[in-house]
Every structure is written in structure tokens, then in C-alpha cells.
Computed example of a mutant assay.
Amino acid sequence: MGSPLLDAIGARRSYSVVTADAPGRAELLPLVQAAARAADHGALRPWRLIELRGEARAALGDAFVASAGLDGPAAAKLAAKPLRASLLIAVVASRRSSDKVPHWEQDAAAAGVAHLLSLLLEDAGWGVMWRTGAHTRTGPVRRVHGLADSEELLGWLYVGGIPDTAKPAVRPPLTPTDFLTSLPL
């Protein structure tokens, strides 16, 4: 017997192509509030999200080009990558000083927020894809996001409308017992 949550998660997919439609800030705020319920040891909230719309996406493309040291057609192609969606949401691990919560665990909390937000966006009818890449942690990309020394960029959620031509996700089912084992004693 399935549940609506189990069914929604089972139907989740990444949309590599989205339309120019995107949720507005007012629609995003309650989704961010709900995503903040992700597991967070110590309730540090070691994350933040940055909206990139309009010219901010072009600035990110320029940072990609600067980090790659390209020019000509290759630079133009790279600069256009952030323009594939009208809304990008940068996911930032904003590490806090803590004696009991190591940085890797804080990064996991930030990733949990991003994943929950992607599920919530899809549930609201938006297409989402979490993108990373070779330029994610370069100096020019860090600078364009205004990251502090204690922060790391985990990637971007590319968000837009779901195209009419979108095909259903094709991911072969897995055998859960291959991934859920018991501690050998």
C-alpha cells in the first residue's frame, strides 16, 4: 500500500530541459521554510540559498568562463549554461563553528535542504535539476556568489516549467536488499 509521499518520491525525476516559467519569490518562501525541516544535528542551519534570476545568471556564466580561461565559441557556450533555466537556486553549505557537528555533517544538512526543496518544487509542479560541475568551487564562481571563507557551494537547482514534451523518467528499479544490509556480527 503506497502513500502519497512514497508515490511522489518514487515519481521524482530530474528535468534537464525546462521552460522559461519559474516560481516567484512568494511561492519559494514557504517551500524553503518546509525544506528547513531537513535533518540538522545541533539545529545549526548550516546552509543558505541564493536566487539567481535575470542578469545574475549571465554573471554566473561570465564566472564560468573566467574560471575556465576560455574565449571564442567555447566561452559563449559555457557562458550560456546558467541561462538554461529562468531560476537557479545556489545551494551553499554555510558552515558554523561547532565542537559537536563536523563540517561534513553540516554539508550533509545543506544537501538535505536542497533535496527536500527539489522534491517540494516538483510537487508544486516545477521541473528541477540539481547541477554541479567543474566550475562549482572555483574562485570566480565563489566571488560572484559572495561566499564567505566558511562557505562552500554545493551546486544549483535549475528550476522552470515542465515542457509538454518531457518524457517520463527512466531509471531502472534497484533491488533494495543490495543497498540495505545488516551489520555483520
Rank of each mutant, 00 (worst) to 15 (best):
A169F: 02
A111V: 05
A56L: 05
G2Y: 14
L119K: 10
V18T: 08
Y158L: 11
F64Y: 14
G2E: 15
L5Q: 14
L88D: 04
A63P: 15
L87E: 02
T138Y: 12
G146W: 00
W47Y: 00
V144E: 06
A75M: 06
A74S: 08
D21H: 06
D62R: 14
R96S: 02
V65E: 04
F179R: 01
L183R: 06
A22P: 12
L153G: 07
L52Y: 04
L174Y: 01
L185Y: 14
L87W: 07
I50T: 10
R131V: 01
R95Y: 10
A75Y: 05
A58G: 11
S14M: 11
P82T: 13
V91G: 00
K81A: 13
V18E: 03
T138W: 11
K77G: 12
V101D: 04
V159N: 04
A39R: 03
E27M: 11
R13D: 12
L29I: 12
D40N: 11
P30N: 08
D164W: 05
T177M: 07
A58K: 14
P82K: 15
A43C: 01
L78F: 05
P4M: 10
D107N: 02
Y15L: 09
A38T: 07
R96E: 04
A108Y: 09
L117C: 03
G127S: 05
V92G: 01
A34N: 11
L78R: 13
D123P: 07
A35I: 09
L119D: 03
L88Q: 06
G24K: 13
L83K: 13
V101T: 03
A109T: 02
A63C: 14
T165M: 11
D99Y: 13
A110W: 01
S14V: 09
S67H: 05
V141Q: 05
A90M: 02
L49R: 04
A148K: 14
H103T: 15
A169R: 12
D164P: 10
G127F: 05
A36L: 06
A80N: 08
A169G: 13
G112Y: 01
G155T: 03
A11K: 13
E122L: 05
S86E: 10
A111P: 01
L6E: 15
L183K: 10
T175H: 04
S150W: 14
G127C: 06
L88F: 04
W130G: 00
L29A: 13
A108W: 11
L116H: 14
I50F: 03
P140H: 10
A79Y: 14
Q33W: 10
A110G: 03
V65N: 07
I50G: 08
P4V: 10
G2K: 15
A63Y: 09
S118W: 03
A111G: 03
A43W: 01
A56Q: 07
L28C: 04
Q106Y: 08
T165V: 11
H145E: 08
P23W: 08
W47I: 01
A79I: 06
E152W: 15
L121D: 01
V65C: 05
L153E: 08
L6F: 11
T132E: 02
A114V: 01
H41T: 06
A134K: 12
E151Q: 09
S86H: 04
A90C: 05
A39M: 09
R13V: 13
A76F: 06
A148S: 12
D123A: 11
P163H: 00
A38Y: 00
P140N: 08
G24D: 14
E55V: 03
L5R: 15
S94W: 02
P102N: 02
R57E: 06
I162Y: 03
A111E: 00
K77E: 12
